[in-house]
Computed example of a mutant assay.
Amino acid sequence: MSVGSMERAGVLAPGEIRLENASRAFSVRADRGGTLKELLLRRGAGSHGPGAIQALDGVTLRITPGETVGVVGRNGAGKSSTLKVLAGIVPLDSGSVRLGGQVVSLLELGAGFGRDFSGRENILLGGALHGLNREQIEARLDAIVAFSELGDFIDVPVKTYSSGMFVRLGFAIAAHLDADVLLIDEVLAVGDEAFQRKCEARIAEQVAAGATLVLVSHDAALVERTCERVVVLDGGKVAFDGECREGMGFYHRMMGTPT
C-alpha cells in the first residue's frame, strides 16, 4: 500500500506521527503522610496547596516519515511529557496520538533491566520485549556487545553497573533495533564525549535509513546538528514549529540567551 493510499484509508505510514489537540495534566500533590495523625491533620487542613499542572495543553504535531524534529523549551514546558505520550507511557486526558510502524524509545535507558541479570542476559530480554525472536537477537548480539564497550562487564549483573554503564548498554540495545520512529530524551547527555559522538553517528545512520526522529534536548548544538525542524514548547503549548535555525533563534530569544 502506498503512502497516499494509506492516508486515504486512515492508516499511518511507517514513521508517521499524529498528535492531535493533546492535553494532559498531572497532580503535584504527594501523599507523604502514612500515620493516622498525619492523615487527620491533612483532612483538617482541607485541600490547600497547588492542584493540577497542565503539562500539555492542546498540542498538535504532525510529523511525516523521515523527519528529524527537535523539541525544546524551558524546564516544565512539556517536552518530556510529549515524548512519554508518544511512547505510550503516559495516557492523554483528551486528544489523540497515533504513530505508524515500529517505535523505539530512548527515554530512561536501562529502566526495564533485570538487575540480577547480566548485561548479556538483558540484551536477550530487551530484544524479546521489542518483539525479536531468539535468532534475531543472537544475530545482533555481538554488534550490541561491541557497541556498548562494556568488555567483561557484559557478563556481570547490571546491579553493579554505574549510571554510565547502564546508558551504554541501554543505548546499544536500542540502537540495534529496527525503528520507524526514534524517540530520544536527553539520554545522550550521559557518558563520555567519545561515546556521545558514537551514539550521534548511530542515530544519523538510522535517520539515513528512513527513521523518523523526535529529540528532546537542552543541548542547542546537538539539536542544530541533528534536526531539520524545531518545535518550541512553552507552558504546555506549541510556541513555534518550523525550520531549525529559525526555531532555535526563537528559543534563544525566549530564554534570553545568546545565539
Results as ranks from 00 to 15, higher is better:
257 T>P: 06
171 F>H: 01
208 A>V: 08
242 G>L: 05
237 K>E: 13
78 G>E: 05
66 G>S: 06
101 G>E: 12
236 G>E: 13
16 E>T: 05
227 C>E: 12
44 G>P: 11
140 R>Q: 11
25 A>V: 11
176 H>D: 01
44 G>R: 15
254 M>F: 09
149 E>K: 02
60 T>G: 11
228 E>P: 01
16 E>G: 10
152 D>H: 13
96 S>Q: 11
56 L>M: 02
17 I>E: 00
81 S>P: 02
186 E>P: 03
122 N>L: 04
83 L>G: 03
29 R>Y: 09
109 L>R: 00
153 F>L: 07
73 G>N: 08
230 V>C: 10
35 T>D: 15
7 E>R: 15
28 V>H: 02
18 R>G: 00
182 L>D: 04
241 D>T: 12
169 L>G: 00
86 L>T: 05
122 N>D: 06
73 G>E: 10
41 L>T: 13
27 S>K: 02
56 L>N: 08
15 G>F: 01
230 V>H: 10
257 T>G: 02
123 I>Q: 00
132 L>A: 01
141 L>R: 00
202 R>F: 11
221 A>H: 14
256 G>W: 07
155 D>R: 03
10 G>R: 01
71 V>M: 13
67 E>D: 13
110 G>V: 11
62 R>T: 11
213 L>W: 04
164 G>K: 10
228 E>V: 00
165 M>C: 05
215 L>S: 07
152 D>N: 12
52 A>C: 07
88 G>E: 10
258 P>Q: 08
146 A>P: 06
91 P>H: 10
64 T>S: 14
223 V>I: 08
17 I>T: 04
217 S>Q: 10
199 C>F: 13
12 L>Q: 11
69 V>D: 04
245 R>P: 03
47 S>G: 08
2 S>N: 13
235 G>P: 08
48 H>T: 14
147 F>A: 01
35 T>Q: 09
73 G>K: 04
167 V>D: 00
58 G>M: 00
124 L>E: 12
95 G>L: 03
246 E>F: 04
217 S>K: 05
114 G>Y: 12
64 T>L: 15
190 V>C: 06
67 E>M: 12
11 V>T: 13
168 R>G: 05
211 A>K: 07
48 H>S: 14
52 A>G: 05
120 R>S: 02
92 L>P: 04
